[in-house]
Design a protein around this nucleic acid. Structure first.
Lengths: 90, 90
DNA sequence: CATGCCTGTGATACTAATACCGGTATAAGA
DNA sequence: TCTTATACCGGTATTAGTATCACAGGCATG
């Protein structure tokens, strides 16, 4: 095996991550936020829906900047959610 | 064109980013840090040398955690370097 | 009803990230 | 000297991220 496929856990983490971004976007439109971050709207959509579970670092950094989010807080929230999920549904 | 190839600017940013990680690693070995972050040593090496200029978000997050770095500080440092470079070599 | 606009979506294409393998060089230590 | 460890490099294979194209639903306006 050359490159390990994404584990279900990683996909769940991606869904959580996307949900956080979507929540932070609020009433703003996808295209508006995507344009502000300098990425395509489709990319933002895939990240929000969890279809791109492990996006590029600078893509996330640009989105976080456009949304006024802290990257450290973001990863912490993801890790916390993951722990809760693991604890609940083992 | 479907996916835009990486621009020289992005590659330079990747080099800067890798240099920051390498500096933060200090005396520790690649394999040690890579293992602590849960990534392969080759991946860490490529990121440090700039051969992987746009690494995955969670890969960077894991490395930053293993190195005790803040992601926000990291991107800020990259952006600052990029601005300096732009200002100098326009 | 038809037309246009805006939002989000599905399919497709192409590039890059990641991992494994082998080889090379350098330095430290037995 | 020989061995070991570390890092670097090239090639290869496979998955995943990203962008363009084409389409559908809602909503206003003529």
């Amino acid at each position: 095996m050359v490159r390990t496929p994404l584990t279900p856990w990683e996909r769940r983490r991606g869904e959580r991550f996307g949900a956080l971004l979507r929540e932070a976007r609020g009433e703003r439109s996808m295209v508006e936020v995507a344009a502000a971050a300098g990425v395509s709207a489709e990319t933002l959509r895939k990240i929000e829906t969890g279809r791109a579970p492990t996006p590029a670092f600078f893509t996330v950094a640009a989105l976080a900047g456009a949304l006024g989010l802290s990257l450290d807080v973001l990863v912490a929230a993801c890790a916390q959610d993951a722990e809760e999920r693991d604890a609940l549904s083992a």
